[in-house]
Computed example of a mutant assay.
Amino acid sequence: MASSQSDSPPLFDLPVRPDFTLEAGIMRDGLAPVAGLDEAGRGPLAGPVVAAAVVLDPDRIPNGLDDSKRLTAEAREALVQEIFSASIAVSVASVCASSIDESNILRASLEAMRRALDGLCVQPAYALADGRDIPPGLPCPCRAVVKGDQRSQSIAAASIVAKVMRDRMMVRTGMLMPHYGFHSHVGYATERHREAITAYGPVTRLHRMSFSPFKTPEDGIAAPAEEAAEFFAT
């Protein structure tokens, strides 16, 4: 797994909002288009990790792009429509809970970003990935950018797309399994979610069995319930 050199700026050097400075510099060097990569869902107990790749049109960058965590759900929903309509290319990919258990969440996150980049309808000449690690197997050069969703508009756009798409998947899961409350917590370890796990057990291929509280020192991994969301089966 390739890792970048430390790219963490002092906090006071972070822009108030992400801008297009990194992308513009890369493009001046003759590398275009530039794709932003980010993921959502590293921390939840259930569901996939979802990544997005976005190639912004420099002449049609949506206003208000920011780290998805700093935006309201309503703002994310509005922006994701603009991102899809105004961008040169957008791609989304995911890695399911079972695959997360077979590797680990970091590898799964990087694999989701690789898949997202591969799914673009245009071939990027360069990629900017949020975080400290470069996804292995990319078809183009890549720079890992610490706090990239607060520095690069391309990464911020990818963070918004990944977050919205994952939330929609989990809301759909909540419609199929209302007793788990996925529509409200989207898989995170809220009190309601933990209470539902205690009452009904974890869901096969949906809950991450390598995560606490499922994995125990005594018996390894807890026995899952015989219920699964079919769209998380692969």
Rank of each mutant, 00 (worst) to 15 (best):
A2F: 03
A2G: 07
D7I: 12
D7N: 07
P10S: 10
D13S: 07
L14R: 03
P15T: 11
V16G: 07
R17Q: 09
R17V: 12
P18Q: 07
D19S: 09
T21H: 02
E23V: 07
E23M: 10
G25C: 14
I26M: 05
R28A: 13
R28C: 13
G30E: 01
L31P: 07
A32H: 10
P33Q: 06
V34P: 01
V34D: 05
A35L: 04
L37V: 06
D38G: 07
R42C: 10
P44W: 14
G47M: 12
P48M: 00
V49W: 02
A53F: 06
V54D: 05
L56F: 08
D59L: 15
R60D: 14
P62G: 08
P62S: 02
N63F: 10
G64C: 00
D67E: 09
D67Q: 12
K69R: 03
R70W: 04
R70I: 07
L71H: 09
L71Q: 05
T72D: 01
T72H: 01
A75F: 06
E77A: 13
E77K: 09
V80I: 11
Q81A: 13
E82W: 10
V92D: 13
V92T: 06
V95A: 04
C96V: 10
A97S: 08
A97C: 01
S99V: 12
I100Y: 01
E102P: 08
L106I: 06
L106P: 10
S109G: 06
M113I: 08
R115L: 04
D118R: 11
G119A: 14
L120C: 03
V122H: 00
A125N: 02
L128G: 00
G131S: 03
I134M: 05
I134N: 02
G137W: 00
G137C: 02
L138D: 01
L138F: 01
P139W: 02
P139Q: 03
P139H: 04
C140I: 04
C140G: 05
C142F: 00
C142I: 00
R143D: 04
A144L: 00
R151G: 04
S152A: 13
Q153K: 12
I155C: 04
A156D: 12
A157I: 01
S159L: 05
I160A: 03
I160P: 05
A162Q: 03
K163L: 11
K163A: 14
M165A: 15
R168Y: 07
M169N: 09
R172S: 10
G174A: 12
M175G: 07
M177E: 02
H179I: 14
G181L: 00
F182G: 01
F182C: 04
H185I: 13
H185T: 07
H185C: 05
H185E: 04
H185M: 05
V186H: 14
G187W: 08
T190Q: 15
H193Q: 11
A199Q: 09
Y200T: 06
T204L: 13
H207L: 06
H207D: 11
R208H: 09
M209P: 12
F211S: 06
S212A: 14
S212N: 08
K215F: 13
T216D: 15
T216Q: 15
P217E: 12
E218I: 12
G220F: 12
G220C: 11
I221Q: 14
A222S: 15
P224K: 05
P224G: 10
A225L: 08
E227D: 13
E227F: 15
F232P: 09
F232L: 15
T234M: 15
